[in-house]
Computed example of a mutant assay.
Amino acid sequence: MFYVFSSEGIIILQPGNCEIRRRITRTERILGSDDELCPRSAGVSPHECVWASAVSVREKYVYVTQPLHNRLLLIDTQAQRVVQAVETDAMPVKLFYDKSHDQLWVLSWGDLLKSRSTLQVDLLTRTVCK
């Protein structure tokens, strides 16, 4: 599947024939949560999704960062749903997946001036390198 991240949400496409398999709109709720896929951001108008980086992990999940919300979203590729939002340091902008160690690394700028950059490793243990 191809995942297209737009200001309107996420579109999941079938490769080859480009058939739309699923649309996840910006107002859709994250599974088991009251959080919207793309909640309104202060100072951002109109109501749009803002994305920075995405990676596929073990062909089971897609992780994608939302820098204005200081989080990343976990998409289950089988269910084709956003199943979790994970809080990160401020302004996560780049994801790296280290397949050999099965670790996800998140580079966060801290702010637009990149003055407080951090690198989070393995979000489950919340180990942070500064």
Rank of each mutant, 00 (worst) to 15 (best):
D35R: 04
L37Y: 08
E36F: 09
E59D: 15
L31M: 14
S41H: 09
S53T: 04
E36H: 03
A54Y: 02
S56I: 13
A54V: 10
A54M: 06
S33D: 15
R40T: 05
S53V: 04
E48Q: 01
C49L: 04
E48G: 00
E36M: 06
E36D: 09
C49Q: 04
P39Y: 05
S53I: 04
S45L: 05
W51F: 06
D34K: 10
H47I: 04
E36G: 00
V50F: 03
W51S: 01
R40Q: 13
Y61S: 12
I30N: 11
G32H: 14
S33V: 15
S53W: 09
D34T: 12
R40D: 11
A54R: 00
S53C: 06
W51Y: 03
Y61R: 10
H47V: 04
A54T: 11
E48S: 01
V44F: 05
E59H: 15
R58P: 10
V62C: 10
D35Q: 08
K60W: 08
E36K: 01
W51H: 02
H47M: 05
E48W: 00
A52E: 07
V50H: 01
L37A: 08
E59S: 15
D34Q: 11
P39N: 02
A54N: 04
S56C: 12
S41V: 15
L31Q: 14
S33N: 13
Y61T: 13
A54F: 03
S33W: 15
C38H: 07
L37C: 10
P46M: 02
D35S: 03
S53L: 07
C38R: 05
R58L: 14
S53Y: 07
A52M: 06
I30R: 11
E59L: 09
G43W: 06
A42R: 09
I30E: 10
D34P: 03
Y61P: 05
V57H: 02
R58D: 15
S56N: 14
S45K: 05
G43S: 01
V44C: 01
A42Q: 10
S45Q: 05
H47T: 03
I30C: 12
E48D: 06
P46V: 02
E59K: 14
